[in-house]
Design a protein around this nucleic acid. Sequence first.
DNA 1: AAGCCGGGGCG
DNA 2: CGCCCAGGCTT
Length: 350
Amino acid sequence: MPLAHSQPLDSTSVLAWYDRHARDLPWRVSPADRRQGIRPDPYRVWLSEVMLQQTTVAAVKAYFVRFTTLWPSVQDLAATPLDNVLREWAGLGYYARARNLHACARAVVAEHGGVFPDSAAGLQNLPGIGAYTSAAIAAICFDERVAVLDGNLDRVLARYYALDVPVREAKDALRGALQLAVPERAGDFAQAMMDLGATICAPRAAMCLVCPLHDGCKAREQGEPTRYPVKPVKAERPVRKGHAFVMRDAAGDVYLQSRPGKGLLASMTEVPTSDLGEKLGEPDFPAEGDWRRHGQVIHVFTHFRLELEVWSALVAPDGLDAGWWAPPGALKGEALPTLFRKVLAEAGLS
DNA sequence: AAGCCGGGGCG
DNA sequence: CGCCCAGGCTT
């Protein structure tokens, strides 16, 4: 799938724009500081890039500050138990990232002496570091001249070339075109292109008049840049239904347990639930009690919509030994995903 | 190559 | 409320 060609990307214009308009982010070294020879810390760049996978800057900032305060170095992160990492990751989503983050920290310490590999090829062997993240770290930290292609760049390039097929079908062509444009300041260029996608060439609006890629952009020339990228036909989102059971003991503590290490919300904390299905079954209460029905919690995942009926009861703790009892004041510190925080709120807790 | 895996913000 | 998003892993 060759790109209907226009002129090559003008990296000089992009860098000049970035020198004036770079965003100030907690993990970033400004272009001015980079010129002074200040280099980014690979640990901080790696941590930020993993957090930013499918996640917005606004959502990441507070988590990044918290993580780097608790664990200032990769050695600190590697030394902490996985449970601590999962607790701090709660609410950020895509929880496999947290497990891979921890595994990666331990691999860097155990196999690389606590020093991150200095090339995209070396980085990509580590857990949770794929094509995008390896390229981003290598470019930002070491100015390796690799194409850093994420969802932001997909959009910018799809517009620049007026790509008339879904990005997924032309990924290699886009990467090749981008690779040809990567300048010596590879790290600044990568960050510049992402800033461009976040502020100028945004998903629902394109401020073409102030864009450094204005001149060569096919979508701008056509007059309707937000027509790109072309979206693939999307499958409908199925609905799954079930029950959630909030149990309290005589002391008022809440029964919690860990989810399986694989699959949905892996290794995170939950209250017991029924099996999920297309149709709502009868509640299979996990203990005897005066079960009271609350409202419904609706939670939308990427690939299905979940509807949970929330129940609560005062129960005797006999037989409930797979999990643990948590006082309501301790719920905040548990590794509870947003779904189960909604469930607890529906039952009148937190 | 396609499916699985969260959550928040925006219009 | 629908749509969008700073990807990687598994099968």
